[in-house]
Design a protein around this nucleic acid. Structure first.
Lengths: 150, 150
DNA sequence: TATTGTTATACTCTATAACTATA
DNA sequence: TATAGTTATAGAGTATAACAATA
């Protein structure tokens, strides 16, 4: 009997790799985000910054970096951009002159609910083939990958 | 009775957005891929190209672009790089002089099983908190997002 | 006219290093 | 010494536009 030819096992195929599928799914989501939020001139990164500042007003820039997994070197120009656009306030910390305390401006606070609704529309669109239960499962599994919690 | 203050609903929080969690999980996976495959000087994109050429020898460059969701303008220099490194052969198509048929060189064919094993180690590492069943579920849900199949 | 593949170019995101000012 | 924030710079990934060769 002839020896079976060595071939790639199904679980080693590119299509079966979770990393590859994560990248493709994330890429599609990023593109759809740009479609939905192009009018607001918000990208995923800048929207994430605004959303987190909204949820934690007075947050320090360093803490924002930590929570979003960004380097402060990359955060700085983005904060400057949001400041110039009148969306973010950077206030001095009372006890530590190195620290910047971040908050949304009244204009951004007013716009935020609408932006959150747009993002919700965007999520409903690119996740339309997943049930509510499947979305909850996906959320849990993704958080198992990149957070230490749970 | 005072009117309840408008606040962000839990499902609109940044942490609850699947797009955000996709991005964070994918980012972690990309970093871990670089750690594992740094020695081989293969990045996710170039590895994906090699893996698919391996699985479909003789595939056309345009078809590789389509399957990987890449623009041919971005594919061209990467194929040239893999060609120069002696990993990919570009052969003329008999009936259509515009077409390039792609195949792995003998050297790449020999190295590929080891690289696939490395990628498997990488996946086991960044997915260590997910059971086998959870990984299968995650794979299915991710494919529901970005493919038209199933 | 449409398709295959190439080149040039620009933009976003991310990484490192060097710097300041404060603690 | 360590931390907060800034600036400069480089790399990787992706986008569009213009092009040559071929169908």
């Amino acid at each position: 009997m002839e020896k079976a030819r060595l071939r790639t096992s199904p679980e080693e195929a590119l299509d079966a790799q979770i990393g590859y599928n994560l990248r493709r799914a994330s890429s599609l989501a990023l593109n759809d985000f740009a479609v939905e939020m192009g009018d607001a001139a918000l990208r995923p990164v800048t929207y994430g910054m605004l959303a987190l500042i909204d949820e934690k007003p007075g947050i320090r820039a360093a803490e924002l970096c930590r929570l979003l997994g960004m380097k402060s070197a990359n955060m700085a120009p983005l904060l400057a951009e949001l400041d110039e656009r009148g969306l973010v306030e950077r206030d001095d910390h009372a006890g530590d002159k190195r620290v910047q305390m971040l908050a949304l401006t009244p204009a951004a606070k007013e716009a935020m609910p609408g932006w959150r609704q747009q993002v919700r529309r965007h999520e409903d669109r690119f996740l339309h083939r997943l049930t509510k239960k499947e979305r909850a499962t996906l959320l849990r599994l993704l958080r198992l990958i990149w957070t230490d919690e749970d």
